[in-house]
């Protein structure tokens, strides 16, 4: 069952040990009504690495991301065929509870969506819904999450203020803190920096690289430089929901196998 990722040579300088596969898609198809949004995807996502999903809009990269934590379940017309394994367990098996799954796989959205609650309560939210009741424990974990999200210094003395009072970049880091507070294994990010200004973007990018030390990060981005800067692995989706190429980021950007991928990366279309 373990395949692909371990076979490729890792150019990653952060870790030399062989990659462990956390998520593996096998012949995964997603339909919206009659439209096929993803075509027979096979992909193995390595642990504690940043995997970037790139491609032109409408190529299915966000659909793929949302199928990992079964957010597509919330769309009535969406239908999934094929398998997606999380540690070898198909998340679309009948006995899998999407709620339990999402407690293992956090998510950050394109538009920052802090709840209209205090900064503290935003971060503590995941802990509370997942059943943590010990106040001391919650305090510690909120602080750790905010520190890991590189937001602690900015909000330390105003945890009671509404999360909506923060700037856009801060709000997004708050959402990242919210996602990591319950300590998931995987963090999914759907164009997390696209709504932010350049300064905030670079902060979030730095943060993503740090997060990869503890978490498996899967990030959708339309920004190829961003993918090249922060990811270890890159998957290129092209129109029609096809995964055209998947491999080490350096390889993809320097020497792609497919002409279509090269055209896309060099900006000939897309």
């Amino acid at each position: 069952m373990i395949q692909t990722a371990t076979e490729t040579e890792s150019c990653d300088n952060r870790s030399t040990r062989p990659d462990e596969t956390v998520l593996r898609a096998s012949d995964l198809n997603v339909y919206y009504g009659d439209d096929r949004a993803l075509r027979s995807i096979d992909m193995a996502i390595p642990e504690r690495k940043v995997t970037a999903l790139i491609g032109p809009s409408g190529c299915g990269k966000s659909t793929f991301l949302r199928s990992i934590n079964r957010m597509n379940d919330l769309i009535d017309v969406a239908r999934v065929e094929g398998e997606l394994y999380f540690h070898g367990k198909n998340v679309y098996d009948d006995d899998v509870d999407p709620v339990a799954l999402r407690r293992k796989i956090g998510m950050v959205f394109q538009k920052p969506n802090p709840f209209p609650k205090s900064i503290f309560d935003n971060v503590a939210y995941g802990l509370e819904v997942q059943g943590t009741t010990d106040d001391v424990d919650i305090d510690e974990r909120v602080e750790r999450a905010l520190k890991n999200a590189a937001l602690w210094n900015e909000v330390e003395d105003r945890l009671d203020e509404s999360g909506l009072e923060l700037s856009g970049g801060q709000q997004q880091r708050l959402c990242i803190a919210r996602a990591i507070a319950p300590d998931p294994e995987v963090i999914l990010m759907d164009e997390p920096a696209s709504a932010l200004d350049p300064v905030a973007t670079s902060k979030v990018e730095d943060l993503i690289e740090e997060l990869a030390e503890e978490y498996t990060v899967v990030i959708v981005t339309h920004n190829m430089q961003q993918a090249a800067r922060i990811s270890n692995k890159t998957a290129v989706f092209l129109t029609g929901g096809e995964l055209v190429e998947f491999g080490d980021t350096n390889e993809i950007f320097e020497n792609p196998d497919h002409d279509r991928v090269e055209d896309y990366i060099t900006g000939k279309f897309g």
């Binding site: 069952m1 373990i2 462990e20 596969t21 956390v22 642990e47 394994y85 999380f86 540690h87 070898g88 367990k89 998340v91 098996d93 006995d95 899998v96 509870d97 709620v99 339990a100 799954l101 407690r103 293992k104 819904v129 059943g131 294994e185």
Partner: peptide, 21 residues
Amino acid sequence: MSTDSPNDSAITGDVARADRI
């Protein structure tokens, strides 16, 4: 830490059972 065994993934019903009920 992770192997490909389904046992440690804990994404089946039991974790969130009380909440689901």
